[in-house]
């Protein structure tokens, strides 16, 4: 008698949720996107194989999600060598050395993209066609409906982003890329916050950082800002969870006199 929600099932459902985004991106991007995706998948497969043989770490379908996120968001025309370098750094240092998907503290795709961004600043960041941007919405809805994406993270980000827009902050240009990064990187169930309060703060912090970058970081591309915000947010996530748990424990202590 077994339930459904083991690691690989969740990885496959997450992959299914990202399908609208991936299909529209491939459809509008053409064969070039497939080359990038293939490179990323191949590189991650090799590293997963290495860790499987060296550390007996079971490989995960989540590598495909990482590959998709890197292929979609990486700077353009990097060339195979730089891509492989960035992906290897992200996958190994961001995920595999911690014990594989599920034990990582930062999203390997975020690490790889940040590495590529900092390491090779001369390359242009990608832009997205409108249908691809809109496809992020069904991806998020599937993720929320099946419970594999934290709804509060998305809600927190939308709340802060919506408030900024309503107040007239100049963030409209950064919004599409920020939305895609939110769905692909920030709403990852493993590395986002795990408590409800922490998730609201997590989403809010991401949107807040995008807002800060959009207003103060001149010359940066929207995807670059969003990836940088995602990296900083994921580093702050354990702190947000700690705050949320401290509040929860304090509330229980007040109610029961003990916990």
């Amino acid at each position: 008698m077994k339930g459904l929600w083991d690691r690989e099932t969740v990885a496959l459902m997450l992959l299914a949720a990202y399908m609208p985004l991936a299909l529209f991106w491939v459809w509008y991007g053409g064969a070039q996107t497939l080359v990038g995706l293939g490179t990323a998948v191949l590189c991650l497969a090799v590293w997963n194989l290495v860790f499987m043989l060296a550390r007996a770490q079971p490989p995960s379908f989540a590598a495909l999600i990482t590959a998709l996120a890197i292929a979609m968001l990486a700077p353009e025309d990097l060339g195979a060598l730089r891509m492989v370098l960035g992906i290897s750094f992200g996958a190994v240092m961001g995920e595999l050395v911690f014990g594989g998907w599920g034990r990582n503290v930062v999203n390997p795709a975020t690490v790889a993209l940040s590495f590529l961004g900092f390491g090779f600043p001369g390359f242009a960041w990608p832009g997205f066609d409108d249908p691809v941007i809109w496809a992020a919405i069904p991806a998020a809805l599937i993720g929320i409906a099946t419970g594999i994406m934290p709804a509060a993270v998305l809600a927190g980000a939308i709340l802060v982003g919506g408030a900024a827009l309503a107040l007239g902050a100049p963030v409209a240009a950064a919004l599409p890329a920020a939305g895609i990064v939110l769905v692909l990187l920030v709403a990852d169930p493993v590395t986002s916050a795990t408590t409800t309060v922490g998730r609201w703060m997590n989403g809010g912090l991401y949107a807040g950082l995008v807002l800060v970058f959009a207003t103060g970081w001149s010359g940066a591309a929207p995807v670059q800002m969003a990836v940088a915000a995602a990296l900083l947010t994921s580093l702050a996530t354990p702190l947000l969870d700690e705050i949320a748990i401290t509040i929860w424990v304090a509330q229980r202590r007040r109610r029961h006199g003990r916990n």
Binding site: W5, R7, P58, G102, T146, V190, T195
Partner: peptide, 26 residues
């Protein structure tokens, strides 16, 4: 069979399996 227990991925199913009564993932 190596690397047991397997990592737990936080999902809504896990939260509800603890009755949403405590920070389940933590």
């Amino acid at each position: 069979r190596s690397g047991l227990p397997r990592p737990v991925i936080p999902t809504a199913a896990l939260t509800q399996a603890f009755g949403a009564a405590l920070p389940a993932v933590a």
